[in-house]
Write a protein that binds this DNA or RNA. Structure first.
Lengths: 122, 122
DNA sequence: ATGGAAATGAAAATCATTTTCATTTGTGCT
DNA sequence: AGCACAAATGAAAATGATTTTCATTTCCAT
């Protein structure tokens, strides 16, 4: 069984939010780190098992990972046309998620929320 | 462009909950209906476009579809473990999305928001 | 140093989904 | 009916993420 890989953790820290396995791999390559894709997958899996990272799914089904207890949880406002992205605060969402979870007795909850539209330039 | 296929709708009705494209395909085969997997995928896609079905992701990333009884815009509270789903109100989200879009000058906005966690039974 | 367990990664396998493309079906028109 | 053209269909190939296999390398404890 592979162990929680500190190098992968470090990349997730620097990514500051969600990143897919492929993105983590590409990032490490770009930074000159020598690592195999298989090892990235295994490290992420074991980080999930150890509850050190959360795993979610993007709309296209790709798995995305984030360090748990990341205080810099934010959401995105993405332009449908040029792909430009703005990081935004989601205080209202946090509250909404908490309230809804409570109402239906769900525990250990997380959430996803993104806004899409046309940016001022497009 | 393929059209919303009534045979696929009928299968989803009988399935009575969520079903993946592969499951819909297998079900139709079992019932002796002649249809290709490609057509199942295309039909589901266009049903999603027409907002006749909802699409979500199972934990393994497979897309699952369900007839969406109302045209009313809603969000989901999904159990990470058993996949059980509750449709919830998202009034706070609508407002949040609108506010954020306005603040950054985005037009023509839409949004996605889902909450996931462990349901009371899991 | 030595042996065994754990970690690694390249390549192949898997699986859902999408794309390609040739064929069939449907529809409007004369 | 016959014809033309658009839409629908589906088999097979392509794609892309993820997992598995397996041979090799690295780590430790003795």
């Amino acid at each position: 069984m592979s162990r929680s890989n500190p190098r992968v953790v470090s990349v997730l820290e620097r990514a500051g939010g969600f990143a897919s396995a492929q993105e983590v791999y590409r990032l490490m390559q770009r930074e000159g780190e020598s690592i195999g894709l298989t090892t990235v997958y295994r490290s992420l899996q074991s980080l999930v098992n150890d509850k050190i990272v959360d795993v979610l799914r993007r709309e296209d089904g790709e798995a995305i990972y984030r360090l748990c207890g990341d205080t810099h949880h934010h959401h995105h406002l993405v332009c449908k046309s040029c792909g430009d992205t703005v990081e935004i605060e989601g205080g209202a969402i946090e509250k909404w998620a908490k309230t809804m979870a409570q109402e239906f007795g769900f525990r250990d909850v997380g959430h996803t929320a993104e806004i899409f539209g046309l940016c001022p330039k497009c």
